[in-house]
């Protein structure tokens, strides 16, 4: 079955900047082919998931205010179904790293990411999260969150305008649509590898058992 092109309502395909990336993903899917039933089911699931991405309320600095602004009256990301911002990482679908990540914050961010339930996505918002931005040379700033956690979408700006953030969110929707939920292709690593890593992670985490008791949410 051919995986169809991804479309976003009332946006032209050409209006998006980096179509090659999506096309690459689609090509990979098409080359592998899939069974009709699984493919249809996949399409429905991807449609559902891409239209119901719930953010984690997470903001460290300036970009966080713009993140609030896209939730507010003028820009209103509720239109896309993103408005159910969850405070608990367990219930969120993507984390919008809005603001600078410092050395002290880095382990916390990693932990938040680990606490999220699969499938999960990361958006790096603003110069600081992408590369360290104006604080790149500082002794206490992580130059780019992609050093810590895998990033799906980058939204440049300092801080990005709300329109840019919406564009970034639409890009994330496109990426979700071009993925395959059943079968695990496009995941970067194979299913087995993933399992192994998860198991390793669990075993390692056992050592921190006292940490769990501390109630750090």
């Amino acid at each position: 079955m051919m995986k169809r092109n991804v479309n976003i309502k009332s946006m032209k395909y050409e209006d998006f900047n980096d179509n090659e990336y999506i096309e690459q993903m689609l090509k990979e899917l098409r080359d592998n082919g899939t069974n009709v039933v699984v493919g249809c089911l996949d399409d429905v699931i991807e449609w559902g998931r891409s239209n119901s991405l719930w953010p984690l309320t997470f903001a460290t600095s300036c970009c966080g205010i713009e993140f609030m602004a896209i939730g507010a009256a003028r820009h209103d990301f509720a239109r896309f179904g993103f408005e159910v911002a969850r405070s608990s990482p367990r219930q969120a679908d993507f984390i919008m790293v809005a603001g600078t990540i410092t050395h002290k914050m880095a382990p916390v961010l990693k932990r938040l990411y680990d606490q999220m339930a699969d499938p999960k996505y990361v958006i790096a918002t603003g110069g600081c999260a992408i590369s360290g931005g104006p604080f790149k040379k500082s002794y206490h700033v992580v130059d780019g969150v992609d050093k810590i956690i895998p990033v799906d979408v980058y939204i440049p700006g300092c801080p990005p305008r709300p329109e840019a953030m919406l564009y970034g969110l639409m890009q994330l929707q496109r990426k979700v649509k071009a993925q395959r939920f059943l079968g695990g292709l496009n995941k970067g690593i194979s299913e087995k590898e993933y399992e192994r890593l998860m198991r390793e992670d669990t075993n390692k985490a056992e050592d921190y058992s006292e940490y769990d008791e501390s109630g750090l949410a």
């Binding site: 449609w47 559902g48 209103d76 239109r79 159910v84 339930a117 499938p119 939920f181």
Partner: peptide
């Protein structure tokens, strides 16, 4: 709150919740 609410999925965003249901069903249970 002077907003629109869901508008993108289905007429007036009316099948927005169905999307959420699919999402929830496929989400990992930790």
């Amino acid at each position: 709150q002077c907003r629109l609410g869901p508008t993108r999925v289905g007429p007036w965003g009316s099948i927005q919740v169905i999307c959420d249901v699919f999402k929830m069903l496929t989400k990992e249970i930790i």
